[in-house]
């Protein structure tokens, strides 16, 4: 049983966590606020959507990456008008001033009339607090915004990496468990609906792609987290081996 994981060394584990970190870093930047010109330029020039690791392992992710990459490729250079189109697409869907066709808050999906600040917001607030995080603008912004949720996951991936490095495997396990719970109970309770609405609402193919990337990436991360968790479970017995490997 332990045979397969004995072949895995800590570098692999850390690499995998790094992959997760970069996914969440990219996603949080796409969702926390309107895109800056610089972000879009970086995305275009780095071709990041062609290179996302494991993207071919999930059909949704694959589709999203293709759409987003094609959308970026279709711009010869990112002219001001192109940037503005993308910027407006974000504003229209997630900021206002009109009613939002794809509200980026969880409670908008769990309550009628698309209310903000519902029990989901409170639960998310507590999940953040457990790891010592709080919104800068506490009380005014709703914690269950997709951008903050992704930011939170991003920070937890960093936390996971340092716990592994510090060989705090018990804490790492519980941190991973919390991430699994956060994905299962919170993100997945609304992300499919959100992504569906975003895909319909987006005028720009780029954001249609991003919607699919988001849902696909979370599906992927569910697998990655399970793998990490399982690895830890098994490595409890073979702890010395693992540490030696490092």
């Amino acid at each position: 049983m332990a045979s397969s994981n004995t072949t895995i060394d800590m570098r692999q584990v850390l690499s995998l966590i790094e992959v997760r970190t970069h996914y969440y870093n990219l996603l949080r930047q796409l969702f926390l606020s309107e895109p800056t010109e610089q972000l879009l330029l970086e995305i275009k020039e780095s071709g990041i959507f062609k290179e996302l690791p494991f993207h071919d392992s999930n059909p949704l992710l694959q589709k999203g990456c293709r759409l987003a990459a094609e959308a970026m490729d279709s711009y010869d250079s990112l002219r001001k008008r192109d940037f503005e189109d993308l910027h407006w697409d974000y504003t229209r869907m997630f900021v206002g001033p009109y009613e939002l066709p794809a509200p980026p808050w969880a409670s908008a999906y769990s309550s009628d009339g698309r209310l903000l600040f519902q029990s989901e917001t409170r639960q998310i607030r507590k999940a953040y607090a457990k790891y010592g995080f709080q919104l800068q603008n506490f009380g005014s912004e709703a914690e269950d915004h997709i951008g903050y949720e992704l930011d939170f996951m991003y920070r937890l991936t960093k936390e996971t990496a340092s716990l592994f490095q510090e060989e705090e495997f018990g804490k790492a396990q519980s941190c991973i468990r919390d991430q699994i719970i956060f994905i299962e109970q919170h993100l997945f309770s609304w992300i499919p609906s959100f992504c569906k609405e975003m895909e319909t609402a987006a005028h720009m193919p780029f954001y249609k792609g991003v919607a699919a990337v988001l849902e696909g990436a979370l599906q992927l991360d569910r697998l990655l987290l399970n793998e990490l968790s399982e690895f830890l479970l098994l490595s409890v017995n073979t702890k010395t081996e693992v540490t030696e490997d490092v």
Partner: peptide, 15 residues
Amino acid sequence: VTAGAVFPASRNKLQ
């Protein structure tokens, strides 16, 4: 992507 100042300056984050 990470290195760039990608967030508009005033925006909210977790702290």
